[in-house]
Amino acid sequence: MRQRGFEIVSSYIDKGIALPRRQTAASAGYDFAAAEDVVAAPQTVTLIPTGLKAYMLPDEYLSIHIRSSLAVKHGLSLINGQGIIDADYYNNPTNEGHIILAVFNHGTQAVQIAKGTRIAQGIFNKYLLVDNDRIAGATRTGGIGSTGK
């Protein structure tokens, strides 16, 4: 039985996308790279496609963190601080679970991001539920932000 991992979304199958991997034996995070060349304009949110989706167990999520080199050297951050990919985001009907990184450029100069540049790291996490947790029948019906409508 598959427990957790990464796949390439169908629209990026033949575009040379590499699956995330850890860089050292003690690395917690799996590196995500840009699937296309992108320019992060100053003082603007830029969406960076990864061409990837992640599957995991129902009581897990994938946390996404900007790589420190991009934050320190180029003034980039994830616009929401940390991304959270829920287990039911995988293969959702709107965007197939495509992980897209929303990056903010705090600087005054545009930042060129080439395809293959490692942008963020993903770390799989377990989570806990409160006593008597109840879901009001909500199911994911789409992609980014779909559970908050």
Rank of each mutant, 00 (worst) to 15 (best):
G75V: 15
T46R: 01
P20E: 06
A35F: 06
F32D: 02
Q112F: 10
A136M: 14
D31H: 08
G116H: 08
G107C: 11
R22G: 05
F6Y: 00
A25L: 10
S69D: 04
A25P: 09
T46L: 01
E96W: 02
T24E: 09
F6D: 00
L52K: 12
A40S: 00
Q121T: 06
R4F: 07
T24P: 14
G51I: 01
H106P: 00
R118W: 13
T44W: 04
G137L: 15
S11T: 11
I119F: 10
A114R: 13
M56C: 14
R4Y: 06
D31G: 15
G5P: 15
V103L: 05
L62T: 03
N92I: 12
Y89H: 14
L101I: 15
R140D: 10
V39Q: 06
D37F: 05
P93H: 09
I119V: 14
L57I: 02
R2Q: 10
N125W: 10
A18E: 06
A40G: 00
Q112E: 09
D14G: 15
R4I: 01
S146Y: 11
S11M: 05
T147Y: 09
G148Y: 03
T46C: 01
R2V: 11
S68Q: 08
S11Q: 04
Q43L: 04
A114V: 11
Y89W: 15
D14V: 12
A33G: 04
G143D: 03
P93Q: 15
K115D: 14
A41P: 01
L129R: 05
L76Q: 08
T108S: 06
G29A: 14
E96R: 04
L78N: 03
T139N: 14
L70H: 02
S11W: 03
Y127I: 13
A41D: 10
D88V: 02
D86E: 04
D59T: 12
T44V: 10
V130P: 01
G97V: 02
G5N: 12
V38H: 03
A18S: 03
I66R: 02
T50V: 06
K115C: 09
Y127S: 14
G51A: 02
Y61F: 05
M1P: 14
T117N: 05
A114T: 13
K126T: 06
F6G: 06
N105P: 00
T141I: 15
I144Y: 05
I48V: 14
F6A: 00
P93E: 15
L52P: 12
G16Q: 08
T44A: 12
V39T: 07
A110D: 10
R22T: 09
